[in-house]
Nucleic acid binder design. Structure first.
Length: 553
RNA sequence: UGGGUUAUGGUGUAACGGUAGCACUACAGAUUUUGAUUCUGUCUGUCUAGGUUCGAAUCCUGGUAACCCAACCA
């Protein structure tokens, strides 16, 4: 009895191709432009391309689409490689479109010789003018009928640097009346006297995306070139070049990109968030970048599972952030080490426990017994969470209140006898008696309580900064709202707690560790931490049935 | 009075002419030394109007809606 998981449309295409003997094995590629940081949407593409190759015994190339020297930089190359590796994938080859500049030039020459490309002296405004609109067809350029010899000479002169930026372009000679705007004699080479991050100053002409991507696929013998829906109109051109150049016929397939609630995904918008200071950096834990999720404490496993669950199809989608959070909690629940930390403290004083003494208690590190135990210091003065005490108990309140009993996690049951307020009327301390015979693990008190709360011994607590992150936007789909998307930024997306009390075991926390602060959420150490000042990021909250109870009234 | 793509619960995704399924969310309950986890259950769906067929989410025809295409960006 094996449960068959149905195939998505790209898997069906691949299985069909394999079954028909069209390919012996497949080759895919992940083709980022090194001009920015990868975001969660890219991880869908990464998981798809690498996942397909893995599933069908093929290989995947990492290819940087670096045909525009003015926007690209090695800084981005490095971060992209780091992010892919972190997600857990290995590429077979690391290629660059710029590796193929010589071949691409040769392809352009072939097109000219076949009378399928020409040099146009028009300005970009003139070219745009003659291009027409989606509803009106375009008109031929006055330079469209130059001879092969003239085009050859002109193109070589472009290459030699005889012209300034914008003076001339090389265009494919296709059809100015096509209903597909991309077929109206697309520009394939432009002049840019710019330094390229890999080829330096060798070139002053650079191929456009459409004259580089498909050919690069072909050179690498990519069998299935997978991209997002907005490239559908490019497919006709992609195939045209392959046909006219008579090169290896890679095929392009398109799927719907990932959109997610409470965030934005476009590079332009993410850039604005960084540049205008709404977040601190590209790897700010509120950013939907892979580096942002990493810094926030997400695991590669959770992101891969997420990408697996969202599926691959061709319709526009807006995935619930709660699905990503589910995948995260599913992973962290089994792996995160349980610890105690008090974020908003009030003091609990045990009046019948001897002062100036302490004992060491054992607490389990996690639900799995193999995770072992750790030591906890217990004494007569403890920090507990302010929200775990109520002056007048609400109905269904299981926590501390005058006369009520709770268990201190991994320690004793206590009963609240009284409390104290400061001048401002805020609770400053609660006084309890404890039941020595209720000690965790050897409880023979006969008492039973409904609530268990976390705590840290005042005399033994360490302190740390804790950063509580919430969703970056107040609305599900900021991009579809009226006005500017930035008007919908959540003003409370970050709350900083300068001095939380943490148990001592956290002093040896490592950047790779994942913790559950019991009852408070999942946390990890932030890279801003120093030896003297630890900083923890909240990765996610725990589900909280009590807040629902409160909302019900 | 252009072309292209897509329409299945609140969200995402299956069903390939034959029982509308799965996951997330929401809600209710059980268990719980985390109001977590786990377990059980409940609600909600085939864009629309016709047609073909014993039988239609699926095929046909006509509507409707959303998204994409007019960078020397990718």
């Amino acid at each position: 009895m094996s449960e068959e998981k149905s195939l998505h449309f790209i898997e069906e295409i691949i299985e069909g191709d394999l079954a028909a003997g069209k390919h012996q094995s497949i080759i895919t590629r992940f083709p980022p432009e090194p001009n920015g940081y990868l975001h969660i949407g890219h991880s869908k593409s990464i998981c798809l391309n690498f996942g397909l190759a893995k599933k069908y015994g093929g290989t995947t190339n990492l290819r940087f689409d670096d045909t525009n020297p003015v926007t690209e930089d090695t800084e981005y190359v490095d971060s992209i490689k780091e992010d892919i590796k972190w997600l857990g994938f290995e590429w077979s080859n690391e290629f660059y479109a710029s590796d193929y500049f010589d071949s691409l030039l040769e392809f352009a020459v072939q097109l000219i010789q076949k009378g399928l490309a020409y040099v146009d002296d028009s300005s970009s405004e003139e070219i745009a003018q003659l291009k027409g609109t989606p509803t009106e067809s375009g008109k031929d350029s006055p330079f469209r009928n130059r001879t092969v010899e003239e085009n050859m000479a002109l193109f070589m002169a472009m290459k030699e640097g005889k012209y300034k930026d914008g003076e001339k372009v090389l265009r494919a000679k296709i059809d100015m009346t096509s209903s597909n705007m991309l077929m109206r004699d697309p520009i394939i080479y432009r002049i840019k006297h710019a330094h390229h991050h890999r080829t330096g100053n060798k070139w002053c002409i650079y191929p456009m995306y459409d004259f580089a991507h498909g050919q690069s696929d072909s050179i690498e013998k990519i069998t299935h070139s997978i991209c997002t829906l907005e490239f559908i109109p490019h497919r006709e051109l992609y195939n045209w070049f392959i046909e006219k150049l008579e090169i290896y016929p890679s095929h392009q397939y398109e799927f719907a990109r990932l959109n997610m609630t409470y965030t934005v995904m476009s590079k332009r918008k993410l850039l604005q968030l960084v540049n205008e200071g709404h977040v601190t950096s590209w790897d700010d834990p509120r950013m939907p970048t892979i580096s942002g999720f990493r810094r926030k404490g997400y695991t590669p496993n959770s992101i891969r599972n997420f990408c697996d669950k969202i599926g691959v199809a061709k319709r526009e989608n807006l995935i619930d952030l709660s699905l990503l959070e589910f995948c995260l909690r599913e992973d962290l629940n089994t792996t995160a080490k349980r610890v105690m930390a008090v974020l908003d403290p009030i003091k609990l004083i045990i009046t019948n426990y001897p002062a100036n003494t302490s004992e060491i208690l054992q607490s389990e590190n996690g639900p799995d017994e193999t995770m072992g135990n750790r030591d906890l210091h217990f004494s007569n003065e403890l920090w507990i969470e302010r929200e775990d005490f109520m002056e007048e108990a609400a109905k269904k309140w299981f926590r501390l209140a005058p006369g009520a009993m709770v268990r201190l996690k991994s320690a004793y049951i206590v009963r609240c006898d009284s409390f104290e307020k400061d001048a401002a009327g805020k609770i400053s301390a609660v006084y309890c008696t404890y039941f020595p015979e209720s000690k965790s693990g050897s409880d023979n008190s006969g008492l039973s309580v409904k609530g268990t709360i976390h705590w840290v011994s005042v005399a033994h607590a360490a302190t740390a900064e804790v950063r509580l992150y919430d969703r970056l936007f107040r609305v599900e789909n900021p991009s579809s709202e009226e006005g500017d998307f930035k008007d919908y930024i959540n003003p409370h997306s970050l709350e900083i707690i300068p001095n939380a009390y943490i148990e001592q075991s956290l002093l040896s926390a490592d950047l790779n560790d994942r913790f559950q602060f019991i009852r408070k959420g999942y946390f990890c150490l932030d890279k801003d931490s120093t030896k003297d000042r630890l900083i923890f990021n909240r990765t996610a909250t725990l589900k909280d049935a009590w807040v629902k109870e409160v909302k019900k009234g």
